[in-house]
């Protein structure tokens, strides 16, 4: 099957063709961007699973005499691992903190994005598909959520549930669900009256089936992209909450918190904010590239263009 697919690729025919996993993998590996994003995600996975083993230093070990050392400074100990990314405002190794911080940041980013994405999408589809009172109710809830100050909401949850890691995820999900709800509703509204939904309805399909088979696939691509954008926003949002006394407290590392702590040193020690910022960016970028590649693979027409993309540019 694989060899068959390869011959078809070489023929570069315009007709959609069936593709096997082998081809897709091979194609992915030939695409430097995809390789890059897979690489970043693999590194993140390693950081998640084995932070203690791969980090060269204890992320909490301070040395005030070695604060704000620039990237590449050799270790103060004989034969020690160099501070590749420099040290932070308390002389802790920045790379080690970045590796340990991945765990908190990814859990918060992915957790709250999944939670808000699921709830928001479901509500948005219901509002757009059924319309009427239900739509009014859900959308006014959106209005309400958007008008209520974030800080006040965060303080309320802190007051009611107390600080903690899970509550951070909860607050962030609570604050962002309406983004998905509005996008899902808008798309559903536009599709609700289209001929193919009408046809599905006439032929006696249940609402649930119509939503699952006909609506969701058409909503998937913007929502998945939105999801990858939200992850970056939520990792940054975690920093704001930590600042208020939620969840992660200093000196525990998280990317958001590291950026927040480097705030006063932007002009004198740029690496304190730049590297955690870069980590968030690379995470969002890799997830985004992977998501749009997977999206391309799952869609016959896009797949065609994606499979051909690299080839066309070559002489």
């Amino acid at each position: 099957m694989t060899s068959e697919a390869v011959t078809r690729l070489d023929s570069a025919s315009e007709a959609p063709r069936s593709v096997g996993i082998g081809l897709i993998l091979r194609r992915l590996l030939r695409d430097p961007v995809a390789v890059f994003s897979l690489l970043v995600l693999t590194l993140l996975l390693i950081a998640l699973l084995a932070a203690g083993q791969v980090a060269p230093y204890d992320p909490l070990r301070q040395n005030l005499r070695l604060r704000n050392l620039p990237p590449g400074t050799p270790s103060a100990d004989e034969g020690g691992f160099p501070h590749i990314l420099g040290t932070d405002e308390l002389g802790r190794d920045l790379l080690s903190r970045l590796i340990h911080g991945a765990r908190v940041s990814l859990a918060v980013g992915l957790g709250s994005a999944l939670l808000s994405g699921t709830a928001g999408t479901a509500l948005g589809i219901v509002a757009g598909y059924y319309g009427g009172r239900l739509d009014d109710l859900i959308m006014r809830l959106v209005d309400l959520q958007m008008s209520f100050p974030f800080l006040l909401l965060a303080l309320l949850v802190l007051y009611a549930l107390g600080p903690g890691f899970v509550n951070v995820i909860l607050v962030l999900a609570l604050v962002r669900w309406m983004v998905y709800a509005r996008v899902a509703r808008g798309l559903t509204l536009a599709m609700r009256t289209s001929p193919f939904i009408d046809a599905a309805r006439v032929t006696g399909n249940s609402d649930l089936r119509i939503i699952r088979r006909h609506l969701l696939p058409n909503l998937a691509s913007p929502l998945v992209i939105l999801f990858t954008l939200e992850i970056a926003a939520l990792i940054l949002g975690e920093a704001a909450l930590s600042y208020l006394g939620f969840g992660v407290q200093k000196p525990e590392p998280s990317w958001g918190l590291m950026i927040e702590a480097g705030k006063s040193y932007v002009s004198t020690a740029w690496w304190l904010t730049t590297f955690p910022g870069l980590a968030i960016f690379l995470t969002a970028l890799s997830l985004n590239l992977l998501a749009s590649s997977l999206r391309a693979i799952s869609d016959p027409v896009q797949r065609e263009r994606w499979l051909n993309a690299g080839l066309k540019e070559r002489p």
Binding site: D31, A233, L236, V266, L285, A296, R305, A309, G310, E313
Partner: peptide, 22 residues
Amino acid sequence: PWSRVDRITNVISLGGVSIVEF
């Protein structure tokens, strides 16, 4: 899609969503 222009724009726009405002 998946051209060089696309990739550059992608990096620019994702920079926007992950940048730290201050």
